[in-house]
Design a protein around this nucleic acid. Structure first.
Lengths: 118, 118
DNA sequence: CAGGTGGATCGACGCATGTCAATACAAGCA
DNA sequence: TGCTTGTATTGACATGCGTCGATCCACCTG
């Protein structure tokens, strides 16, 4: 650690907390398998997909896929619901919208009224 | 089990290549420091920021910051230009727009998605 | 040309992450 | 109750990544 300027927050840029939240969301999508999982679930009929539908799409053991799904659920990007024997996954659109807003506006991860083209 | 859309139909999920491209972009933003760097550069006057302007914002050695900037440049999210003594960074908006499109549509990443400011 | 400064790169370290096989758990069925 | 199938978790392993100090390079100035 070096006596640099203290982490400046509350000025013009994204604050530390917002950056951490954003980074965690982006990290959840930082693997190709997880990107595809989100796309598949989103495009599934009725907006939900069963694990057994997703598994055959990937050439990897079932445990690996479950691991990736767990990460997406932990990040809040997917939600899981167990109905009887099968687990069903849905896309939670709020986190995706938050990321989208942040990419467009560059501001903190919260509702941002700024116009698209400043 | 209900079959998902076949990989060859118009409603196809993200292909492997698109998913890899997307994942690499998201990965570049999977660290809070890099999220803040992008926000800072974007909000800088004239849309560009000098390394020496960015450095004091972070409590970490200069080498670490340079490392993060390198990752962002390698991902195409930032561009670097050396003018005399200083290095200047700008935000490349196309990759951000591509990510945004992908979050909204779930489709593959294209070269020039319907950009936000065209 | 010598010295100084801004910034990039190198090498090492420790921790996080993706992968797999094996195992555990949960629900339906015989 | 026990068996079978679907899914989650565990543990081990290798690799990747963020961090840091040290060093190197490019550009300016005297």
């Amino acid at each position: 650690m070096v006596p640099l300027a203290a982490p400046t927050t509350g000025t013009t840029a994204l604050d530390d907390l917002g950056a951490s939240v954003a980074a965690k969301l982006f990290k959840a999508l930082s693997d190709p398998v997880r990107v595809q999982l989100v796309a598949l679930v989103r495009q599934a009929p009725d907006g939900e997909a069963c694990f057994c539908d997703l598994a055959p799409r990937f050439a990897m053991p079932q445990s690996s896929l479950s691991h990736h799904l767990k990460i997406l659920v932990a990040a809040g990007i997917l939600s899981r619901e167990r109905r009887g024997t099968w687990s069903w996954y849905r896309v939670e659109h709020d986190p995706l919208a938050a990321m989208e807003t942040m990419l467009r506006a560059g501001g903190p991860l919260r509702e941002h009224p700024a116009g698209a083209c400043e």
